[in-house]
Computed example of a mutant assay.
Amino acid sequence: MGTSLTPEFWRLFAVLLGISTAVTFVLSAALDALVLRARRRGMRHRSAGPRTVEVSHRPDRTLVRH
């Protein structure tokens, strides 16, 4: 059962392809902006406070195998 693809199909296909491309582009740009904003906020919060260095409370031990 062979069907032919009509000009109406190709028109609709082109419209849907264009819409999906535009939606993908807009969502990608929006998510990218959100990630950049979150990273900048994280950097600001890290640099705002005094620098603390974590120190291990365990003494250095050497492993000895017998």
Rank of each mutant, 00 (worst) to 15 (best):
L36D: 12
R58H: 09
L34A: 09
V53E: 07
E8W: 04
R46K: 11
V64P: 00
R51T: 12
I19P: 02
H66N: 10
T3L: 13
P50S: 11
V64K: 15
L36E: 12
S28A: 15
T62E: 14
L36H: 14
R65E: 15
P7Y: 01
G18Q: 03
R46S: 14
P59H: 02
R44D: 08
S56R: 01
T52G: 09
V23W: 01
L12A: 14
G2Y: 14
R44S: 03
W10V: 04
W10M: 12
R46W: 10
R61A: 08
L5C: 04
D60T: 05
L16Q: 03
V26D: 00
V53G: 11
R37W: 04
A33D: 07
A22T: 07
R51C: 11
V55N: 03
T21G: 02
V35C: 09
T6D: 13
A33C: 01
R41C: 09
A38H: 09
T21Q: 05
R58C: 07
P50N: 06
E8I: 15
L34D: 06
T21M: 00
P50R: 08
A38G: 09
G49K: 03
G2F: 13
A38S: 15
M1P: 07
A33M: 05
T3N: 13
F13T: 09
V35M: 08
V53S: 05
L31K: 10
F25R: 10
E54W: 15
L12F: 06
S20P: 01
A30Q: 04
A38M: 05
T24V: 12
L12D: 04
P59I: 03
F25A: 12
V55E: 03
